[in-house]
Each structure stands twice: as C-alpha cells, then as structure tokens.
Amino acid sequence: MSVGPLLDIKDLYVHFHVFGGTLKVLDGVNFTVYSGEKVGLVGETGCGKTTTMKAVLRVLPMPPARIPGGEIYFKGRDILKMGAEELGRVRGEGISMVFQDPTAALNPVFTIGQQLGAVVRYSLAGGKRISRKEIHQRAVVALKEVALPDAERLLKNYPFQLSGGMRQRVCIAMAVAGSRELIVADEPGTSLDVSIQDQILRLLRRLVEEKNTSVILITHTLGVVREIADRVYVMYAGKMVEVATTEELFSRPLHPYTLGLMKAVPKLTGGGIADGIPGRIPDYLDPPGGCRFHPRCDQAMGVCSQEKPWFYRVSDDHEVACFLYREGGKEK
C-alpha cells in the first residue's frame, strides 16, 4: 500500500444556488484519513458534515450544488476529476456509506437477500460473474458477520419485517461486505435507542478492526466519537475548527466552540449543564467574515472578524483553527 493518506480532502468549497443567492456551505474543508484509521467528524446540525461526505461520494445534487474549489484525493486520485467508470469502481469497491436512517436506506420492495446480493455481486466479485449459489453463500457470511441470527431466513425477509436494530445491522453488512477500504458511517444508530446504538457501535468497531478498514464516523454526539475514533475533527459552519487524537481532544479541548460543546453536554456526573453557546449557526447566504464562529465566541478578538484562522499546531497530535493559538501558544 502507498504511504500517503487514503482520503485527503484539500480546501474543499461547496456552494448551493438557491432563491436569494448562494449558500456558501463548505468554506475550505481540509480532512485526512490514513489507511486503517478511525476518524470521527463531529458537528451540530447544518455544519456541513453530511455535505462533505456527499461531495466525497459525488452524490451532491448538481445543480443546485456547485464545487467552486478543492480536491478530494482517494488513494492519490482526485475523485472530482474521475470519469464515470473509475468513480463507479471507487463507489463499488473503495468507499461505502452507512446511513443514519436504516429504514430509508433499504428499498422496501426488495428482500434483504436481493439487496445484499446486489452489493455482493458488484463489490465483492469485483465485476466478475459469480454463481447465484456463491452470492447466496457470501450474503449469509455477511449477515453472520454482523451477528444476525438465522441468516438464511432473513435473506428472504423484506425490510419491514425487521426491527430498526436489525435493519441497521443489515446496512452495516452491506457496507462491510467485500473488502472496502473506507466506510463512511453517518450517525449510525442515532435514530435507535441507546441500548441498540451501543450494540451497533461495538459491532462497527469490531468489524473495522478485524478487517483493518478505515472509518469516518459522522455524528453530532461527542460521546459517540469517543467510543470509536482514533482521531477527531470538530466542524463548525462549513470548516474544520479543531483536530486531535481522541484522548487529547477530550482531555484538552481548545477551540472555544469545542469547549462550549463539551460544557453543554449533560454529564452522568451531574452538577447541571453550562448554558451552551449563544446564538445559532450562521446564515450561509451571508456568513460572517473572518472566523465564522466569531459572533458566537466569548473570546473573540479584533482579528477574528477580519481574517480566517489557519490551523495552528499546538502539539504533534493537536491542531486548532483559532487565533488564540497563533504562534503556538495563547495570545495574552
């Protein structure tokens, strides 16, 4: 394998053209995943995390979306410049996605066997023709991997006959079937109960560790990334604001946004919750200049509304896009 990153997003911009102007949703996203790495992407509703991943899979509706700038390298090749055939191979064999809502991700009029079979045929077999029997066998194996009992019978079932947790497992089975190199999991299990979500997360972690697959876990819940990820990106209003190893981030959050978020999370230790972050996510039609977080930031300085902060390296495994950390340390 090459030594470079598996996925490398460089200065990605995504705009949406709507009534009244242009929604400047992604504003220079930089994001890297190395082979075998589990990366978390945390951000609140509307921060652009799903848009980023849709851009990676090239499933953004264009129009209204447009990508005015940026590159997305997958194994050294720019996804945005790929032809249909190469893109198809990346989607089929390279990257797969687990969606938040397993009910919407499965087609209600096909059986689990038909849907899983199609995935097996296109991804696992790598385009070669394989017999029905083999497809069936591999589908059974895929279901057993996600700890679903009675796989034979399950293959004949329709999605509505399964519980939410089972559907989510089927989606994961479809995503890990074959040797995909990267799985993008968009809020896996968030629509399910915590006790089920916990099972799903443990399953996902076990599978990717076994297969040494890379994972991008998209979520709005800080606790969920802490369970799985090696490294975490925090995203706010179309830009990454902080990246660090999981341990580092949770023990020493630095960006005012991350800090606010951490304080707002209700803790099992009790003691009430801090007041959160004032205001709300900016209007993408007319986002604030400079650092997009400055209108909500309690430590904003003059420069924050003027210039966009770069990532400042505070330690080997911790970078923050905030002027407080320019020159490698806090400005007094």
Binding site: E44, L222, L261, V265, P266, I273, A274, P278
Partner: peptide, 8 residues
C-alpha cells in the same frame, strides 16, 4: 435539538 441549544 443540538446540545448547545438543549443546554439553553
């Protein structure tokens, strides 16, 4: 709601 809004 998001956590930052939930807190409020």
């Amino acid at each position: 709601l998001d956590v930052s809004i939930q807190a409020k």
